[in-house]
């Protein structure tokens, strides 16, 4: 059956309808947008300029700048002073009580203090300035504890200078002063200018002088160059500047074979390796002369 309503007719303006086309400006804008330089400028240059301009405008006023700085500082202080970051206690481990006190004094912290305000590297340097400290490790532990792990220097020799007696470790670094040599009778004694710098050599000599250790009084550095071994009865062994340990071992071998040091000898001069020289005491010399039949009466030597 035919519908009563007429079929829908197209608007009579259809003939006038133009095909879609970009307007001149849309076309131009698209071409402009496809230009690489413009595109870069629009995407990066323009935002950067705008941002920089805004920041500059805000910061150009002195008061605003100060306010911003104050706010930032305030926030920062608030954050740093939170209880989680506060250090309440310094624990020093691995040190004797006196040294621990010295370390605490050196740290010089007014507790409680935020851990942000503690310059651990500087504190470590300060502690390591102490002569008795070989190495210090600082660590902020949970619970607000600043732990200082100290490795003490172990005294190896005593160094007698003109006025004081110092304890030195095996490398020759000062550990502490002593009031008297008798406080540490277990440590060997060295003396002389520049003796501390040659401490390892001195320790090697002392260990080489094991057989004559009961007679050893100490080592004397001569001319910051070589060692003299001083025994009791004012006997001296003059060691060469180079390879002194070998020279000493030779002498000890000689002593064990012929009991050289048990005799009335003042000095044994080993400075020239192929020609050791003995200096005998006056009595021994006279006895030797008498034994040789030489007249010795009235002579001092």
């Amino acid at each position: 059956m035919q519908p009563m309503s007429a079929p829908r007719r197209h608007a009579p303006t259809a003939a006038l309808r133009r095909d879609p086309a970009p307007t001149k400006w849309a076309y131009r804008m698209q071409r402009l947008w496809l230009t690489p330089l413009f595109r870069f400028g629009f995407r990066f240059g323009l935002p950067v300029v705008l941002l920089a301009g805004t920041v500059a405008l805000v910061l150009v006023d002195e008061g605003r700048r100060a306010a911003i700085t104050a706010t930032v500082d305030d926030l920062r202080t608030q954050f740093q002073n939170r209880p989680e970051f506060m250090v309440n206690l310094v624990s020093v481990e691995g040190a004797s009580p006196e040294l621990a006190d010295a370390v605490r004094a050196r740290l010089n912290l007014t507790l409680p203090l935020s851990s942000f305000d503690i310059d651990l590297v500087a504190a470590q340097a300060r502690i390591q300035e102490l002569d008795a400290v070989e190495r210090a490790d600082l660590m902020v532990r949970a619970g607000g504890i600043l732990e200082v792990q100290v490795t003490e220097r172990v005294p190896a020799v005593l160094w007698r200078t003109e006025f004081t007696v110092e304890m030195l470790d095996a490398t020759g670094h000062r550990v502490a002063s002593l009031a008297a040599r008798g406080d540490r009778p277990d440590l060997p004694l060295i003396a002389g200018e520049g003796a501390d710098a040659a401490t390892p050599e001195a320790l090697a000599l002392i260990s080489a002088a094991e057989p004559i250790l009961p007679r050893l009084r100490g080592l004397v550095r001569v001319g910051e160059r070589r060692w003299d071994l001083v025994l009791d009865r004012d006997q001296r062994i003059l060691l060469p500047a180079d390879r002194p340990v070998q020279a000493l071992e030779r002498l000890i071998a000689l002593d064990q074979a012929q009991d050289l040091l048990g005799r009335d000898v003042l000095t044994v001069d080993l400075r020239i390796s192929h020609r050791p020289v003995l200096r005998m005491a006056a009595n021994a010399l006279n006895q030797r002369r008498a034994a040789q039949g030489l007249l010795t009466s009235g002579s001092e030597l």
Binding site: R18, D19, A21, P22, Y27, R31, L34, T35
Partner: peptide, 21 residues
């Protein structure tokens, strides 16, 4: 004017596809 619009349409679409000017 009509031809110009048609040329613009074609060129713009091709540029859009190529993404170059």
């Amino acid at each position: 004017a009509e031809t110009e619009r048609a040329v613009r349409t074609a060129v713009q679409a091709a540029q859009k596809m190529a993404n170059v000017r």
